[in-house]
Simulated scan of single mutants.
Amino acid sequence: MAILCEINLDREPDHSFVPGEAVSGVIKYKLSENLTFKKITVSLMGEDLLTVDGTCQNSSSDISNENYVKINNLILEDEKGVTFAAGTYEIPFSMTLPYNIPKSFDYKNNKDGYCINYKIFYYIRVKFVRPGLMRHSQSFKKSINVSSGIVPTLPRVPVTYESKRKIEKLFSRGENSVALKVTVDNSVVETGGRVQIKCDVKNDTAFNIKQIKVKLVEELKIKATDISEDVYDDLYSISLNPSLKSRGDTDVIKAVLDVPKDAFTLQNSVLVSRNYFIYVTAVLPAFYKNAVLKVPIEVGENNIDAVIARDTPPSYWDAMNLCHENPTWLD
């Protein structure tokens, strides 16, 4: 098909769109000869694609995908077809991103024998369909980046979590346990920021607890029904030496953990969730299960209350110039 096409956005090439923002621009296409079309559609699309390979080799994979945005603007529809003379044409467009959509995301990881590829992507598409039994069509796409903040579900004030690990020990009277109490200053942390914790430890055992480990863990959970693999990555860890030599000893430990710049909590994805936790572990002697406290945090920009009020985009009818009897882009 003799069509040359380019999709131009009103924003800078590196602009990141946010949910609720209008995506607008002009589609310019050139016909090198007379062509007849039965349908022309301009669409704003958002999709994701998940591939999980259980061998990390070239073998069959589990593949799933979902649509998050599917806005179709019908520019032309005529079963018999409309003939366009050779020449250059323009189609202005303006479509608004929904609010509850995930941000653009590209994840690859080889973990525990699995190759996991997950991508969330958005694009503008123009599709030209010609009449005839074969319904020959041609599409052109332009990718856009969507940057979405998070809707915090955790407290943004100091909050405390507690747990007690009871230890079974033969020929021992009284309680044998290790109590952990962790206070997080803010459970919602910006990407690339820091999270501060205070840990109170009480040793009600005869053991000498020599080490407390604190680590920041990323958890990727695959929610597809036919896949049940979770992937854990340690992002930051420190080891501390408490003073807990005998029964009744207590100690207060403070720690600051750096959050990587590429970390963020993934929300609104149907197939995958990505969350973050702080694990505080009191290391016990061999043959005893360690005392562990798992503390949730959320990572990302909280831009829900800071969506910039932008100029009101033109209506679809104005953008497409369809309020006139003869649209100018067909002249």
Rank of each mutant, 00 (worst) to 15 (best):
K80Y: 08
K30P: 00
E6G: 03
V252W: 00
I144G: 03
L216T: 10
N73K: 14
D78Y: 03
S177P: 02
I116S: 01
F287M: 12
W317I: 14
S269P: 03
K80W: 05
T160D: 08
V26W: 06
D311G: 14
I101C: 06
E218K: 15
V217R: 13
V283K: 13
E298V: 03
E298F: 05
N73A: 10
S64Y: 13
I124H: 06
I7C: 08
P260Y: 04
E162D: 10
Y316Q: 12
K39P: 02
D234V: 15
C5G: 02
S177W: 01
E90K: 07
L235I: 02
K166C: 04
F287T: 14
T191K: 12
A263G: 04
T191E: 11
G149Y: 04
H136Y: 09
R173V: 12
R11W: 00
C199V: 14
S187E: 10
N275Y: 01
I278M: 08
D234R: 06
K38R: 14
R310A: 11
L170N: 12
S43E: 14
N117T: 10
I167H: 07
K261H: 07
L154A: 04
P314I: 09
D230W: 01
H324K: 13
T225A: 14
I304C: 03
L170V: 07
T160S: 15
D331S: 08
